[in-house]
Simulated scan of single mutants.
Amino acid sequence: MVVGNFPLKDKIAVVTGGGSGINLAFVKLAFDTGAKVLIADLKLTPEAGDLIKASKNHIAFATCDVSNWSHLKALPSEVTKAFGSTAVADVWIAGAGVFEPTWSSFLSDSEDAHYKQMSINAEHPMKLTRIAMRSCLSADKPGVVLIVASGAGITGNYGCPVYCASKHAVVGFTKSLAQADEDEDFKVVCILPGMVSTPLWTGEQAKAVHAQYSFTDDVCITPEEVAEAMMEMVQEGKYKGGSLMEVAKGRLRHELESHQSIVVTGPAEKKFADQCYEPIRKVFRSERGAAANGANGTHCV
């Protein structure tokens, strides 16, 4: 049991950070393909607002601070509010992120309790994935999560160590959930863009780092190029759970190897894998079909 080919037509997608940049480009493509989309973001750009108005209720907006788990937990309810009482999202894009901002960085070190950058870039995709799995399992339907990471998730950079750490975290998380595709009909994949012409690099707050990272348009790819690769990863069955794809200048659609810790080659390895995975499988079995069985259903968090 694997998700396989998963066309977006007539499906519902939730996109965090969908108000601008790469994720807005994905929203446009998903809508053009025939999907309904919930944008979960702090605010909308004028372009996103105009798109919602023109969508004839096929695109909706929910205010969402992805570092606030109560906002993330509310997203299944926001889907039903936008698209009907039985609506359950099929595709979840963990797209919101920040790049080593001065208010949350290793060098400024100005925060008292934690690096909020880690909450946004690493914890939010993990929590969103858990919410998405519970929602889809409850409705007993397949689902897909795509996490927007970065090429920094497989390299390091002395200038932005917390950012790199956050992206390494979600790359490891994606690899770890590869088995969910086979076990639960739920696919988790990850895209790793290089420099992209988005507000992350072109906005007012980013101008100070242009010289530091030699930012110019000629080393960048467009948000649309990344969004097209995201669509491919979501819809095409050749990208199985745990897949990683690098998208950068000169390396469009560069699929990376994803290694699981347990490789089943015979009965002994299968026995060990089953032993390791059974506690996880037991929880997911209890959540499957919960909506039909009268439990909390898609709203269970």
Rank of each mutant, 00 (worst) to 15 (best):
E225P: 00
D218L: 04
G250Q: 04
P161W: 12
A152G: 15
E255W: 06
E236M: 11
P142N: 09
G242H: 10
D185Q: 13
S150A: 14
E184P: 00
A227E: 11
A149M: 03
V209F: 14
V148Q: 06
A248G: 12
S214K: 14
P223S: 14
K167I: 09
K238W: 07
P193E: 06
K207R: 15
L137G: 08
A227Q: 09
E246A: 10
P142M: 10
M245H: 00
T216F: 02
G143Y: 09
V234N: 02
S258Q: 03
S138Y: 03
A149Y: 01
K187W: 09
A139Q: 09
D218F: 08
G250I: 08
E228Q: 15
A206W: 02
G172N: 14
M245K: 04
C190G: 10
T174F: 11
M233V: 13
Q205V: 08
G241E: 06
L256E: 04
V196A: 07
A178G: 13
E236V: 12
K141I: 13
L177V: 02
E232M: 09
W201L: 15
R253F: 14
W201G: 02
A178Y: 11
Q212E: 13
V145R: 05
A208G: 09
C190R: 09
C164N: 11
T222L: 12
N157W: 12
E184I: 00
H254N: 12
G156D: 08
F215T: 07
A149R: 00
K167A: 07
S166V: 05
A169K: 07
I154D: 00
G143W: 10
K167T: 06
T174G: 06
V162N: 11
A165D: 02
V196T: 15
P193W: 06
Q205W: 09
I147K: 01
E225G: 00
I154E: 04
F215K: 08
T198P: 03
V188I: 13
W201Q: 10
A206N: 02
A149C: 08
I147W: 01
S258M: 06
A169V: 11
D217G: 13
A165L: 13
A180F: 14
D218M: 06
V144P: 01
Y213W: 14
T155E: 10
V234P: 01
P142R: 09
K187F: 10
I221P: 02
Q205L: 12
V189A: 05
P193S: 08
H168Q: 04
E257V: 12
L200A: 11
I221V: 15
A211K: 15
S258P: 03
V189D: 01
I147C: 08
P193R: 08
A178T: 08
W201Y: 07
